[in-house]
Design a protein around this nucleic acid. Structure first.
Lengths: 119, 119
DNA sequence: CTGAATCCCTGCCGATACTG
DNA sequence: CAGTATCGGCAGGGATTCAG
């Protein structure tokens, strides 16, 4: 997150009064927070085209380091955009699948792309 | 970063092959780059409601430091989203006005907000 | 194959102080 | 009123290495 060094696990935080954290009180910022990070949209775009494994994504997006890719995926999973599906057996295979919410990002990216295109 | 250190006007640059900079090749990232930075959307939202002076914005968005606010405004001006209108005389007054492109961010923020709301 | 751990470096962001 | 200057902290992100 932006900062606030360590989250209080139990405490409600309740910053409604001063709105110190924009992400908590502002829907636009919530979405931007999900999409935050370089190339995150490209990861989502790739998954909008179908399920992908880690290696699939690595090959499709060579500009992301392993760490960056893993970070993006973990963040998107935690945001409820992706689901991680581990397949048993060897070699280990993991499929990343968009959730219902994740699929709704399609139109969002479309709008973002349209505006950026017209700029 | 966002852009290459020093643009060589003559050299083709031609980064299409590797696409090292997402902002340059990806319309979605262009838009996200414009909206980058904490509370940037709130600044735009505020200006969508009408022209504002620096002090107006400072009062409406007390969570931004002067520096942060000045940074956002400068960035948005450079992105072609805002226009800075200095008025002669004393005391100095500066009005920030959305450009045509800037006004088109209204629907974009709407979509972002809708998605974040539904999450 | 799918990541997690580490290191380091960059640049964002906040606070304060100061100028035209 | 409308900013700029400066400093410092801390998280983000890249490269490499290691583990399940």
């Amino acid at each position: 997150m932006s900062h606030r060094t360590a989250g209080h696990p139990g405490l409600p935080d309740d910053a409604r009064g001063d709105a110190a954290e924009p992400s908590a009180s502002c829907p636009e910022e919530v979405t931007l927070d999900v999409l935050r990070g370089r190339w995150t949209t490209l990861v989502v775009r790739e998954l909008l085209r179908g399920d992908r494994s880690f290696t699939d994504l690595r090959q499709a997006l060579p500009m992301l380091s392993d760490k960056a890719l893993a970070d993006r995926l973990a963040h998107l999973v935690q945001s409820g955009v992706l689901e991680r599906r581990r397949q048993p057996g060897w070699p280990p295979r993991t499929q990343y699948v968009l959730t219902q919410h994740g699929r709704r990002l399609g139109p969002v990216l479309q709008v973002l792309g349209d505006w950026g295109d017209a700029l």
